[in-house]
Design a protein around this nucleic acid. Sequence first.
DNA 1: TATTTAATGAGATTGATTCTCAATATCAAT
DNA 2: ATTGATATTGAGAATCAATCTCATTAAATA
Lengths: 143, 143
Amino acid sequence: MEKRILNKFLKDKGLRLTKAREAVFQRTFSYQGHFNPESLYLRLKETGIKVSRASVYRTLSLLCECGLIEKVRKTEEGTLYEYIFGHEHHDHMHCLSCGEIIEFYSEDIERIQEELCKELHFKGINHSLEIRGYCKKCQKKKN
Amino acid sequence: MEKRILNKFLKDKGLRLTKAREAVFQRTFSYQGHFNPESLYLRLKETGIKVSRASVYRTLSLLCECGLIEKVRKTEEGTLYEYIFGHEHHDHMHCLSCGEIIEFYSEDIERIQEELCKELHFKGINHSLEIRGYCKKCQKKKN
DNA sequence: TATTTAATGAGATTGATTCTCAATATCAAT
DNA sequence: ATTGATATTGAGAATCAATCTCATTAAATA
């Protein structure tokens, strides 16, 4: 399914489905959640697949364009991406101690945001909400 | 007031109030909203004040540490900061067309977040919510 | 298969940020 | 005000993610 989307996207733009693009695309599935380009590049390398960093970056841009993945945010370790196709929209809690990412979704927050946009005459396209703090485990560790 | 906070912070850490730090601190007030280190550096330069880029970066870190300013997010143009002392917490709408930043605050969203944290056993420290889309003006332009 | 042209990889480049270190400035004690 | 211990500075080097360059290679279609 995802493959078909990528294919159509490429064809429509007159682009080609190459070994490099295929490899990056596939390896993308090896992540549960967030990943950055460098990590993806290294995983490809480990597996013995030769794809240049440049191609990793270039392909990630394409995967964003066709809506399979999305930039989450920029960090000290580079831009974070995540797979979104087939995943419902969600927001994140980010543990400052162990780095864990907890996904959550709130109908109420979505609704209130829409109301706020209407109020302020803003046409909302998407949003990101990140709550930073400490996960259950790390709270215990401290005590 | 802010000056006193900075002073106390420095003294407590055995740091010194230098010309460079004073200058960066002061120039920080020339911004209404968001700013990045390079822009601050240039404004200082324009005014004829000689402070190195290194000192700008170093001082911004200190101002963050003592809670006068805060990192908003990383962008292509570098890290965005904003003054927070004396400003109530708020979130942002970000116009993808003209770049305008609209601040907003919602008691409801704050409350729901607290509830969510409790539910998920997460100790929330702070959060950022950004809604991306198009402001009133830019919506009109399109039509 | 041949032809056209998009895509690739290696390495250079850019841009933000941090680091290094010798020279300088601050501040507490005198 | 002077001194002395040491924090701070600035210039430029170093780092790191990301992008660009360009000669070579490889898709895709006729």
